[in-house]
């Protein structure tokens, strides 16, 4: 569905995306992980049209989307969330979500109804009339997800929607994301919460210093020595192994 081909991007002398290639399969949940500054968000910014790559190609459903504006790319069916949440602070939750719902719905009533159903899906149903500025961190993350979802995307790019959430909140959002995939939306996510990555993703790529250093199922990644060295560390890798095999360490 989404093919990244030899993507390269530099900011001045710093190579932030270095010859990165991967393919996201339709209907899957894939994860892009790696240490801070590895260039994950920059790849998202290039897919969604906010940054122009210096080299390589991004193909969505067989067609190159290089050079398209963010709004055009959204119209094609790729929606993104922002790592630093970007609510429309002066609008309430319903109005926030309706902006995206209007992409394929001209009528106000239809857009508001769609916004409400999306809000219920992500667990914001009780807060529809709250100003976005009054939401908690968890609420804002959900709003970010709801806004992206309201554009009826085929591919959803989720940039750390679980960062800053407590374990209980993470447990709540994991089934929501799984539900979105079940409704037919392909998902590519950036995440540091390894529990969620292990739990959700079919395929994982590991990025370090702008380069892909590993690719595979989460279980394969967890045992990859390069990944353990660059990102996971030995403790986390052991815990992930344990989680996979069902053995609990005290």
């Amino acid at each position: 569905m989404l093919e990244i081909v030899q993507l390269s991007k530099r900011f001045g002398g710093l190579v932030v995306t270095n010859d990165v290639s991967f393919t996201v399969q339709s209907g899957s949940i894939s994860a892009l992980i790696g240490p801070n500054g590895a260039g994950k968000t920059t790849i998202f910014a290039q897919i969604s049209g906010f940054h122009q790559p210096d080299g390589g190609d991004i193909r969505f459903e067989g067609q190159s989307i290089i050079g398209l504006t963010p709004e055009r790319i959204c119209l094609r069916g790729i929606a993104r969330t922002f790592q630093i949440v970007q609510p429309f602070a002066g609008l309430n939750v319903r109005e926030n979500i309706a902006v995206g719902a209007h992409l394929h719905r001209a009528g106000r009533r239809a857009a508001l109804e769609h916004a409400e159903s999306i809000a219920h899906r992500v667990g914001l149903g009780a807060q529809l009339d709250k100003p976005a500025a009054a939401l908690t961190v968890a609420g804002r993350k959900r709003l970010e997800l709801a806004k992206a979802l309201s554009t009826d995307p085929k591919l959803l790019l989720l940039d750390e929607v679980m960062a800053g959430l407590n374990p209980a909140e993470i447990d709540e959002i994991i089934p929501i994301i799984r539900g979105i995939r079940q409704s037919g939306v392909t998902i590519l996510l950036i995440e540091h919460v390894m529990r969620a990555v292990m739990n959700l993703s079919d395929h994982t790529w590991v990025l370090n210093n702008g380069r892909l250093i590993a690719s595979g199922t989460p279980a394969q990644i967890a045992t990859d020595p390069q990944v353990i060295e660059a990102y996971l560390g030995h403790g986390a890798a052991a815990r992930m192994q344990a989680q996979r095999t069902g053995v609990h360490h005290a």
Partner: peptide
């Protein structure tokens, strides 16, 4: 709705088409 979205946050509005 679009005009107010642009007022509040132009990048976020672009991301929503």
């Amino acid at each position: 709705a679009r005009l107010m979205a642009v007022r509040e946050n132009e990048d976020a509005a672009r991301a929503l088409g």
